[in-house]
Design a protein around this nucleic acid. Structure first.
Length: 418
RNA sequence: GUGGGUGUAGCUCAGUUGGUUAGAGCACUAGGUUGUGGCCCUGGGGGCCGUGGGUUCGAGUCCCAUCACCCACCCCA
């Protein structure tokens, strides 16, 4: 026996019937996107490594240790995308989309790759969907993104969500805050864990993300970003909060919410669910007003979010009233003799011409076994063509719900309407 | 990278202080109904008990190693 080859660690095969859930989620996402008139953008799943280093930030965990990076035959460094925004912005700049779309409202959906140790809610290949609104700095854009995000979750039946929001300012006012935070932390450096001591140097804001009690204790009286926001950032944040209030959106301000990607400015937010375990973030995003410029485009303010589809499905499965999708089939064709197969195939094609889903078992099994099959496949009706019927030029149409059976000439295709 | 947990049939899991041919439910399959699904009944097929080594008269069970998966830290969606 040959040794079977197994799937790569951290990847998943999505099998029927679970794949139907996945399709349902994708359909719902696309439907909601169209409600807000967002249009799909499909970019390659690999890019030059440089793109991610420049956008996400070379010192971030994602770029410094989680990317699948390799050299192609021309010795160019390529990377499987770890997130979606960088590619969208790259395409936006590359195709000068700002000309055609003064405000570009785009969405994407597809697989992302990060080489992390897998655990609940964290795979090495996982799927995200997300949006990008490019070309406006309006706080209304932030809110539209957030409510679109919430609507997708709501329409999927996920209710136990929590929206947290914060502003991390622009590069200028954040600089002032960084300085103040470092001043505050410096005398306490000894009491922080080794990870946080590193963060102190690389990105002191991330100390807030530390889950260690001892580190959190040191942060109790730490300065908060909101005291350091410049007028423009302050106004923007207040406006976002105000609109959310007006729209009756529940949220909480989390002064310590910091994102792990370097490109964010002003608004950042995260939606969590208690159904998930340790990796409880369903989606997150924010404003990134300097990224387009950093990727070689004209200065263009923008907002976006990304959401994890596997995590969304986990949350769905745990929400009340969730049922696994049942198999659907309009017709099953059962026959008692291989000689009838050709006729049955023709008949099936004519049913399909009318838009019916049709299945035939080619194995020559007993009628009983075929009926069982039909039942298991969720067939609404079964067309039975036995030897007797075949010689008479008729078939039996059986309604699987009621058990009623009628004899009909083979020349007549059943009506599709119920 | 660091912890902890789990590996027995396709799936979910039993398996007594080590003791004959390793079990159940679901799924699959054949029949009960010689041409008809769901419910019920009866039979059948399926296991290098993760892998390698050790202890023992004897190992699914004890010991060591190894691999895989899961969960947590870390990080993020």
């Amino acid at each position: 026996m040959m040794e079977p080859i197994k799937r790569i660690k951290g990847t998943d095969d999505i099998l029927p019937p679970e794949s139907a859930t996945w399709q349902y989620v994708a359909d719902t996402i696309r439907r909601v996107m169209s409600l807000y008139n967002y249009r799909e953008i499909i970019t390659p799943i690999f890019e030059y490594t440089e793109l991610f280093a420049r956008s996400i930030g070379a010192s971030t965990d994602i770029v410094s240790k989680e990317m699948y990076t390799f050299l192609d035959m021309g010795e160019r460094s390529l990377t499987l995308r770890p997130e979606g925004t960088a590619s969208v912005v790259r395409a936006y700049v590359e195709h000068s989309l700002s000309v055609k779309f003064p405000i570009a409202k785009l969405y994407y959906i597809g697989p992302m790759f990060r080489q992390e140790k897998p655990q609940k809610g964290r795979k090495r290949q996982f799927n995200q969907f997300g949006i990008e609104i490019l070309g406006t700095d309006s706080p209304y854009a932030d809110v539209e993104g957030i409510i679109l995000n919430l609507r997708v979750l709501k329409e999927l039946g996920i209710t136990d969500t929590h929206l947290m929001i914060n502003s991390i300012g622009d590069p200028n006012c954040r600089q002032g805050y960084r300085r103040a935070l470092k001043e505050y932390l410096q005398p306490r450096l000894e009491k922080l864990c080794s990870d946080c001591q590193l963060r102190y140097h690389n990105n002191p804001l991330r100390v807030f993300d530390c889950k260690k009690q001892s580190c959190q204790a040191q942060l109790e009286d730490a300065p908060v970003m909101s005291d350091y926001l410049c007028d423009d950032c302050r106004k923007h944040f207040d406006k976002v909060l105000h609109i959310l209030d007006k729209l009756d959106i529940e949220f909480s301000i989390n002064e310590r919410l910091v994102r792990g990607l370097d490109y964010y400015t002003k608004t950042v937010y995260e939606i969590t669910s208690t159904a998930l375990g340790s990796q409880n973030s369903l989606s997150g995003g924010g404003r990134y007003d300097i990224l387009v410029e950093e990727l070689g485009g004209k200065p263009t303010p923008a907002f976006g979010f990304a959401a994890g589809i596997e995590r969304i499905i986990m949350a769905m499965e745990q929400s009340e009233g969730y049922e696994t999708p049942k198999p659907q089939l309009d017709y099953f064709i059962a026959l008692t003799n291989d000689e009838i197969l050709t006729t049955a195939m023709e008949f099936a094609e004519r049913l399909r011409d009318k838009g019916n889903s049709v299945n035939i078992d080619f194995r020559g099994k007993s009628l009983k076994s075929q009926m069982k099959q039909a039942d298991k496949l969720g067939a609404k009706r079964v067309v039975i063509i036995g030897d007797d019927e075949f010689s008479k030029g008729v078939y039996l149409l059986r309604d699987m719900e009621t058990g009623e059976q009628t004899e009909i000439p083979l020349s007549i295709i059943p009506n599709t309407d119920k």
